[in-house]
Amino acid sequence: MAITGVGLFGFIIAHLLGNLLVFAGPAALNEYAKKLHDLGPLLWVARLGLLGMVGLHIWSAIKLTAANKQAREVPYKSDVLPVDGHRRDDIAVKFAARTMIFSGLIIVAFAFYHLAHYTWKVPQINGIHDDFETYYVQADMVTSANFTEGEQGKNPVDVYRMVVTGFKVPWVTGFYVISVALLCIHLSHGLSAMLQTLGIKNKNTEKWVDKGAVIFATLLFLGYISIPLSIIFEFVKLK
């Protein structure tokens, strides 16, 4: 879990940094998108790697959960609240730790939607009558010599326009924000657990690691939601 977690965590940071280019204007974002696409086979290696990691992460999560259920075939029968007001499972367990499997599953669902929306460009998945397949970089956006105007059916895609159009839809943004929130809750425990598992977190560093994980997760959250919110509130819009 931890090893695949590290990989996925890396992707999440890279993905955010890339996407924040939206604030640098359409040209920067599209250029970045093109560079990614131009990697060709390498991109596919990265994609497959990422897919593999997601798969492994989920597979080990499911296996772990099943084995852990097996480890207590007869559950506790009492449903009383202990004196300190927690359920017995949560003597020290925080919300995040308890809900890893649920937050994880919702994130997977979101990831599919997100991929369908922007990568597979499934028409009308966002509910607006506009097909992302038709979004190509326009001439006025070309900034550098090797960046040519797009053609119908060919790259480069106008990612900027896609993003802005997509997040104009309130419920898409809503789902996105909720999912990202869950992702960050997932991460706040995942990060500290990962560091614990690897032994970087210990009694001396505990406070810092736990705080750090929460701060980091919050920063990620803010970073990610800044994009759709800026679009919804029209800080970022189509030119």
Partner: peptide, 8 residues
């Protein structure tokens, strides 16, 4: 079962 670092 295995450890999911809940700390209980």
């Amino acid at each position: 079962g295995s450890c999911t670092v809940t700390g209980s």
